[in-house]
Computed example of a mutant assay.
Amino acid sequence: MNIKQQEVAQMNMVEWLSDSQELGKKPSKIEFVKKFELYEMHYYIFKFKRSVFTSWLVGVSGGYVDNDLVPCGHTFSDMKKCNATTAQNDCIDMIERIRSYWMEQAKSYT
């Protein structure tokens, strides 16, 4: 596994969550869950907490091509509780929604 890419993915997730439209701050805790491949890119699943006493939520950072350290823009969380059994499928659903949105946007430019 590319540890540097995983570290960058975590920083990317924290940066995304810190945005005022998301958590508006860094999560109180964040942990790597697993890596998976989709569309020939690497994706990293993280679980995070809004504050110490809240439930774990799930988010995804990616996609990373080969050993690149810049994601393609598929970093997201819909602030859903993290479920170890469904986390990867939950993240794939988020990625598919992002891809669908940008494909629709691209149609308006053609």
Rank of each mutant, 00 (worst) to 15 (best):
N2Y: 06
I3V: 13
K4N: 13
K4F: 08
K4S: 09
E7Y: 04
V8A: 05
A9E: 09
A9C: 07
M11C: 09
M11W: 08
N12M: 05
N12H: 10
E15I: 04
W16S: 05
L17V: 10
D19G: 10
L23P: 06
K25C: 11
P27T: 07
K29Q: 14
E31A: 12
K34E: 15
F36Q: 03
E37M: 12
Y39K: 10
Y44T: 08
F46S: 06
K47G: 08
F48L: 01
R50Y: 12
V52N: 14
F53Y: 14
W56T: 06
W56Y: 12
V58P: 06
V58Q: 08
V58Y: 08
G62C: 02
G62E: 06
Y64I: 04
Y64M: 02
V65R: 11
D66A: 11
N67K: 12
D68C: 09
D68I: 03
V70R: 11
P71W: 01
F76A: 10
K80W: 01
C82Q: 03
N83D: 15
T85H: 06
T86V: 01
A87P: 02
Q88C: 00
N89M: 12
N89E: 15
N89H: 08
C91S: 03
C91N: 04
E96K: 14
R97P: 04
I98F: 00
R99V: 09
E104H: 00
E104D: 03
K107L: 00
